[in-house]
Nucleic acid binder design. Structure first.
Lengths: 225, 225
DNA sequence: GGTGATACTGTATGTACATACACTACTGTA
DNA sequence: TACAGTAGTGTATGTACATACAGTATCACC
């Protein structure tokens, strides 16, 4: 957006709101004449002037054909809202979590559905959290956050030496000093806790830490096959 | 929608798809000329004819002004989609399931997230489905459907004589002739199967059946407190 | 007290658009 | 075999629309 984003005047805001309302009600943007009818203007130039002002402030884009008004900024989340979350499987070497390379697909869902707000989704693989009702194949919402409190369920990013990437796993997090313990929630003894000493540096991969917190578990979605 | 909803021809589907694409890309519906340019027609009547055909099948609505095309049926969910599902707790006496009286709140979520498509949500209360990872407080998506196959998880509407309303419960459904069995998924012996004989009429509430299928379990959302 | 932004009126113009009429041609179907 | 639905071409027409030019009035502000 090139235009400088200044504040709209009251009148301009009213007109922008009318454009959005029209779009919502009829599916088509209004004409200059429509705007005049709504506000009682007797000259199409009243509308034209406002549109140009609103466009120069970056809120809409004008195309030079009939009804060529495109709303760029949507205050009341009516239409353009994204409602999409990336689904992250693995984290490629040296990449931030939300880098495009890591996005497997995009799921249409309102991030605000979860608490705290989810920043991305992860597909659970395995049964390590079975006892808290998180099953293989579930999509969990993760709130991006680099630290956590003891006892919280986190998305742990564990570096895999072979593949050179980080795998995400849900674990219950406990930390005492430099010692971190990652618990599973499955009574089966094969799911033993993982113990990590943060002072221990992994020599094979100097700059990449063995472990980091990718975020906080914030809820889940299950879509039966 | 008054128009009879028939299937579109391949060409008509292509054109509908182009309308949606245009709407998505530019925010404005295409003109007849735009459609001609896209498909290589040399007469605007080619476009006009298709639009009328698509409109008569109920997929779009034509208004008699420029770019007056409104998409009513939105296959790939671009703009007009609501993304809201009602949350149904109990069913008031004599009301259809989705009656307004039964809607506790509305949750912003894409119905297509679930399979089959969810028509409403229900908040699980109790632990009867714990063994399949459906916990107390979870929101389950329900696909409205009055019948089910053996072994499917359904939302059962059970008439409660005291309150005069129907309570919704998730159960695994089995039917043999007129005998219906509703299983819980919890190894604890307190969750015994419910047996219902469909030939038995409840005398205290003559016209209201004891039991009906409210719909099919289609997935769940969990929002930790 | 002049300058610029906002908020309009009034008139005019050319073209973008929807749409009607008239025809051709193929296809499934009753 | 005739009819309805689909898929087009070609021409024509009136109006819906964006938009330019020329003004007026109010207000803030330096």
């Amino acid at each position: 957006m090139v235009a400088t984003m200044q504040n709209l005047t009251d009148r301009q805001a009213e007109i922008l709101e009318f454009i959005q309302r029209t779009l919502c009600n009829s599916g088509v943007p209004p004409t200059r004449a429509d705007i005049c009818a709504e506000f009682g203007f007797s000259s199409p130039n009243a509308a034209e002037g406002h549109l140009k002002a609103i466009a120069s402030k970056g809120y809409i884009e004008l195309m030079r054909h009939s009804r060529g008004i495109r709303v760029l900024v949507d205050q009341n989340r009516s239409l353009t809202q994204q409602y999409e979350l990336p689904l992250i499987g693995y984290i490629a070497a040296g990449q931030p979590i939300l880098a495009e390379e890591n996005v497997e697909e995009t799921v249409r869902i309102d991030p605000e559905l979860f608490h705290p707000r989810a920043d991305f989704l992860h597909r659970v693989s395995g049964h390590s959290m079975k006892d808290v009702g998180i099953l293989d194949g579930d999509l969990v919402g993760i709130h991006y956050q680099p630290d956590a409190d003891n006892g919280q369920i986190i998305a742990a990013a564990l570096y895999d030496r072979r593949s050179g990437r980080e795998a995400i796993t849900l674990k219950r997090y406990y930390r005492r000093g430099a010692k971190v313990r990652l618990d599973s929630e499955n009574s089966d003894p094969q799911y033993a806790p993982i113990e990590i000493d943060l002072t221990q540096v992994d020599e094979d991969s100097q700059d990449t830490p063995q472990f980091r917190i990718a975020g906080l578990y914030a809820g889940l979605i299950r879509r039966p096959r």
